[in-house]
């Protein structure tokens, strides 16, 4: 989207599998099949639950109905949503609750069989029970996918992540095993941030 803004400047590299994704000849379409994204506010497409999940694979050229059915079922099962929606796959995803919509978005990301899933504050718009379900889901999914989650909830970071990185004004300040960060971080700045002494 930054491509549409003439004065937008980008510096630095984002490396994925040793390739700089900002390089001119980099295939971003291919990149998007490998890295899935889940946003802060659930954003299902205004279409049926089924079509939400099938959208990506269809774009990739999957036409076979049986194969699509299978991808949809598998993805919804992995997103712990199948039992709740299996009888209403043709209904609009917009009718689901916030927590269910977010799981549709996660299922949609999983349908592409990505290697990495980026989650930007995936539970900030959800109630505690829906949050709990998403966190359980993340804990389960991290066995198969690399999940990078941005969260402002220190408790959530401590609960579900294996590694925690502290960024301040765009710079990586400290990264370590989550236990180390929350028990005895090396930098005072990190300590002040996680203990809420500095915003």
């Amino acid at each position: 989207m930054n491509d549409l803004i003439p004065e937008c400047k980008i510096s630095g590299d984002i490396l994925f599998e040793d390739q700089n994704s900002y390089a001119k000849d980099y295939d971003v379409i291919e990149l998007r099949t490998k890295i899935g994204m889940v946003f802060q506010k659930p954003n299902p497409f205004p279409m049926s639950i089924y079509d939400n999940i099938a959208y990506g694979p269809r774009c990739q050229g999957v036409k076979d109905k049986n194969q699509l059915d299978q991808i949809v079922e598998e993805s919804l099962k992995r997103a712990a949503l199948w039992d709740e929606v299996k009888d209403r796959l043709k209904e609009s995803a917009m009718k689901l609750s916030g927590g269910q919509q977010q799981r549709v978005c996660i299922a949609r990301a999983i349908a592409m069989e990505p290697e990495v899933i980026l989650m930007d504050e995936p539970t900030s718009a959800l109630d505690p029970i829906a949050t709990q379900r998403i966190e359980d889901l993340i804990t389960d999914l991290k066995k198969d996918y690399t999940i990078i989650i941005v969260t402002h909830s220190m408790q959530q970071a401590a609960r579900i992540s294996d590694y925690t990185a502290f960024f301040y004004l765009g710079e990586l300040k400290e990264m370590d095993e989550t236990d180390v960060i929350f028990k005895s971080p090396k930098l005072k700045q990190t300590e002040d941030y996680i203990t809420g002494r500095f915003g």
């Binding site: 220190m154 408790q155 401590a158 929350f182 028990k183 005895s184 971080p185 300590e191 996680i194 203990t195």
Partner: peptide, 8 residues
């Protein structure tokens, strides 16, 4: 207060 690090 959910204390962490030195507070915990």
């Amino acid at each position: 207060e959910s204390p962490v690090a030195s507070d915990l």
